[in-house]
Amino acid sequence: MNDQVGGNPKRDRFQSLCQRLRPDLLRFAFWLSRDRALAEDVVQETMLRAWKAQDSLLDEAAAKPWFLTIIRREYARSFERKRLVTVDVDELIAREEPVLAAAQDQELTELRAALFKLPEEYREPLVLQVLMGFSTAEIAAELNLSNAAVLTRLFRARKRLRALCGEDTHLDPEE
């Protein structure tokens, strides 16, 4: 059934790596773009570029940040190619409703919609931390920021998100 992947260890290893990482890469691209179709395109293009540049991946353990860097570049390129226009966030939420809707959990659906409303500068480090498991230093390296700047963005991200979700924030500290 799987004869296409036999006999080429290099290709098999890379394919296995792609398969393992793909769900998280798709999720990252989705939260970055807030657009499922664009996320799929970006990840597809990322895989092509990654295949071409695989010799530069010296340590498989570093594969996730390596792929994420390519995804971020591809996402930026998609703006150049398509001259994407700013879209109203409520339109984005309505368009991606099938992804945002969580079966039998309205709170989760609302939280996803609130994530759509977070500015990218806050959403991206939050996704890297919570979804991808990056440390503050790793986020700083990926986004080319200082550790302090990353912590500030994460603080603001959670503060805004909690407010958007109607959480009790009266005990949250001021900046």
Binding site: R22, P23, D24, L26, R27, F30, W31, V99, L100, A102, L108, L111, R112, L115, L126, V127, V130, L131, L161
Partner: peptide, 9 residues
């Protein structure tokens, strides 16, 4: 939040 970010893939 972790569950919310974990959309189906």
């Amino acid at each position: 939040l972790a569950r919310a970010l974990h959309v189906s893939a």
